[in-house]
Simulated scan of single mutants.
Amino acid sequence: MKRGILLLVIAALSILAACGGAGDSADDEKSKGTVTFGLNNWAENIAVSNMWKVILEEKGYDIELKSMEKAPVWAGISQGDLDVAAEVWLPATDKPLYEEYKDDLKLHKTWYEGTGLGLVVPSYMDINNIEELNQKQDELGLEQIVGIDPGASLMEMSRTALDEYGLNYDLVDSSGPAMMSELKKAYEKEEPIIVTLWNPHWAFAEYDLKYLEDPKKVYGEADDIYYMTRTDFGDDHPEIVEWMNNWKMDDDSLGSLMATIKEADDAESGAKQWVEENQKLVSEWTE
């Protein structure tokens, strides 16, 4: 009798295990495929890429984020090694890259309007114009401008600015986070510092900063931000293209996303928190 009961228990457990396996298989089949985003180390790029990771994974996609400098992102999209890049600044900042790769990628709609970039200083510094940098160099006690990733378009523009204005400063290659670390240290001590910076960026909410006027327009006029994909991505994933074409952000929404991520343990958890708190806006894009 006991042997018979034992056999029944074993059989029941086997059936449950089989059902569990079948369930796992069904879950696997629910995946809508893997989508790979290319991103560089700019605060808003990290923010929106992680935001879309959260949104799309909730919709059944597997999302991979690959971080690299800007030029390899463009090359990866054009070669089909990457699927999506959330940030293209046009008509000025990314024009050289766009001209090089435009025939081998798909540029989609604008999601943010009216960017800015250039040389930035704390507002407590007594300087307002790039042309004053040499004149006030001894007073400032500075010999360098703290830059970001060497391959960034902003750095290329800054190298041009050094030449156009004949600046007696070294432009130091760095990264977005390293540049922000230097800015934070100087700002807390009210020391002079010059950095390459852009908006949208959470730094303008955190610190009282100002752009140095650029009378020669080396940094160009304001850009808008688009997103791009590999050429046939829309055929493979039309609903993602539809959702991302509905995507619009402004200083308030993007600023709150970046601020939430800045305060979180990591970018993805911050993005998840922001998505949960902004379901109405996200639903406008995806429904």
Rank of each mutant, 00 (worst) to 15 (best):
K2E: 06
K2L: 08
I5S: 07
L6A: 08
L6D: 01
I10A: 03
I10W: 00
I10N: 02
A12Q: 07
S14R: 11
L16C: 10
A18W: 14
A18R: 13
C19W: 15
G20L: 02
D24T: 09
K30P: 10
V35C: 05
V35Q: 10
G38V: 10
A43R: 14
N45S: 08
N50C: 13
N50I: 04
W52N: 11
L56Y: 00
L56S: 02
E57Y: 04
E57G: 06
I63Q: 14
S67L: 13
M68D: 04
K70V: 01
A71F: 05
A75K: 13
G76E: 10
A85M: 07
A86C: 14
A86R: 13
E87I: 11
A92D: 03
A92M: 02
T93P: 01
E99W: 13
E100L: 14
Y101K: 00
K102E: 00
D103A: 06
D104C: 05
K109H: 02
K109Y: 01
T110R: 03
W111D: 06
E113L: 12
G116V: 05
G116Y: 04
L119I: 10
V121A: 02
S123C: 02
Y124L: 08
M125W: 10
D126P: 12
N129E: 06
E131V: 07
L133Y: 07
G141F: 10
I145F: 05
I145W: 03
G147M: 04
I148M: 11
D149V: 03
A152R: 11
M155V: 15
R159Y: 01
T160Y: 02
T160G: 07
E164W: 06
L167K: 02
L171I: 03
V172D: 00
D173Q: 02
D173G: 02
S175C: 08
M180A: 15
E182S: 09
K185N: 12
L197F: 07
P200C: 07
W202D: 01
A203D: 05
A205L: 09
A205F: 07
D208I: 14
D214A: 15
P215H: 07
V218H: 11
G220P: 04
E221N: 05
A222N: 12
A222G: 12
A222K: 15
T231P: 10
T231L: 08
D232T: 09
D235P: 15
D236K: 12
P238N: 04
E242F: 06
W243P: 01
N246S: 00
D250P: 04
D251M: 12
D252N: 04
G255T: 14
A259T: 11
I261T: 08
I261E: 09
E263C: 07
A264D: 04
Q273C: 07
Q273I: 06
V275I: 14
N278S: 10
Q279M: 09
L281Q: 09
L281C: 00
S283K: 14
S283G: 02
W285D: 00
